[in-house]
Nucleic acid binder design. Structure first.
Lengths: 224, 224
DNA sequence: CGCTGTCTTGAAGCGTTTCAACACAAGTGG
DNA sequence: CCACTTGTGTTGAAACGCTTCAAGACAGCG
């Protein structure tokens, strides 16, 4: 039990929206946090579910996706430890528009809607942090719309790899399956496979297994 | 001058994020609001400009767009009176990612960054309203990404018209030029023109001038 | 009225999707 | 640990939808 609570504290203090709080305030947050585990493949929430909690990833990985009007799956983002979700629907009355699914065995810290709203009003600085997070997420979303609408797959893929390289150095790790990456980039697995093969033929990258890419010519990728 | 201040009050009280405030608090907001006018075609801010103010549209219309990596223009949204912008960059340190341009003669109410942040901390309920607004904007942006990535132009256009019809009844008014609409939908003016002509041949709609559409078969549009 | 930008229409070319077949990897149960 | 099953990834060929370029029609604005 000691260990369990230790995990929760670790979880909450990981999250950018809380990590500026004093120890005392943090303890207050801790009291409304509940822990929950999901196995790989389990769904945290469906589109249409009533939104009633903020979900913070402690261990594992979660993917957020939508279904389009015609029923196709659209990957939106991957949550790593410290990332959170569920907020979207908290502030509009209503239900989730997206699906959240654990892609590995995952541990989540949850804060109920009412508790979170109380925290926001009591500590306005939390709101500012959430606003920051929303801003950058909106920014990335609009950038993604722009890319899918105006660039071809080759370019979208090159930019995606180059951005991974900014944090991962020149051996980058794909955070998702190629199937999901195809969906994220707004294309099909077949086209993704062909474009990656092209990059390899041109000597721009080299695949090591299914999820590792060695970048051999970053400038070449960006000049596409 | 009396008239000028009257306009400003009207402007601020229009905005959903402020309209729950008491008269007294509203007066406090009024003191930090500055008015500014833009002629049709003038730019409110460029991508790369430092973000230093919240812009609220009082009269007129503003379009928000991005440039993609390859230099193409991507329409993101249209601001009508009561809508606001400029917030994105306020919460991240840094600069605007998008362009804001007046598409008609427009009057804007501005609140400087520092003043707005003070208001947010003093009246936490304003934050909740801004979070609501961000939530729904993020929701729409992710929906747009999904549509551009998974639906064909025909479907995206049909959905766009159908959604206009929800507010406008069965004679809808396009809020922007067809050139901009093409960009918004992630296609070219040529393709947009062809798809609209198709809808007209099939008896689904009827164009009246360049910006008015009479919807003749809404169900037909949605079953595409 | 004439200019400028927007809109339309046609024809050709291109990138992407689709379908199908096969290779491969991961996970399960004997 | 191997065989089996299931899902993921690859490769080819054909079809499709969209973009591009070009030319002309139309609308808006000084």
């Amino acid at each position: 039990m000691e260990n369990h609570l230790g995990n929760q504290r670790y979880c909450v203090s990981l999250v950018p929206i809380f990590n500026h709080l004093e120890v005392e305030q943090m303890n207050e947050v801790m009291q409304v946090v509940k822990s929950r585990s999901f196995k790989k493949g389990e769904i945290l929430y469906h589109a249409g579910d009533e939104a009633n909690a903020l979900h913070i990833v402690n261990r594992g990985q979660v993917k957020i996706y939508r279904l389009s009007e015609s029923g196709k799956e659209q990957m939106l983002r991957i949550l790593m430890p410290g990332d959170f979700t569920g907020e979207l629907a908290l502030f509009q009355e209503g239900s989730h528009e997206a699906y959240a699914e654990a892609t590995q065995d995952t541990q989540i810290c949850m804060i109920r809607d009412e508790d979170f709203q109380k925290l926001l009003v009591k500590y306005p600085t939390i709101s500012l942090k959430v606003l920051e997070e929303f801003s950058s997420r909106l920014d990335r979303s609009e950038q993604q719309t722009t890319r899918v609408a105006t660039e071809k797959v080759e370019t979208r893929l090159a930019l995606f790899i180059a951005e991974l390289a900014e944090t991962d150095q020149d051996r980058v790790h794909l955070p998702m399956s190629k199937k999901d990456l195809a969906s994220y980039l707004g294309t099909t697995p077949e086209t993704l496979s062909r474009r990656l093969a092209e990059f390899e033929e041109e000597g721009l990258i080299k695949m090591k297994g299914q999820r590792e890419i060695v970048i051999q010519d970053l400038d070449g990728l960006l000049f596409i």
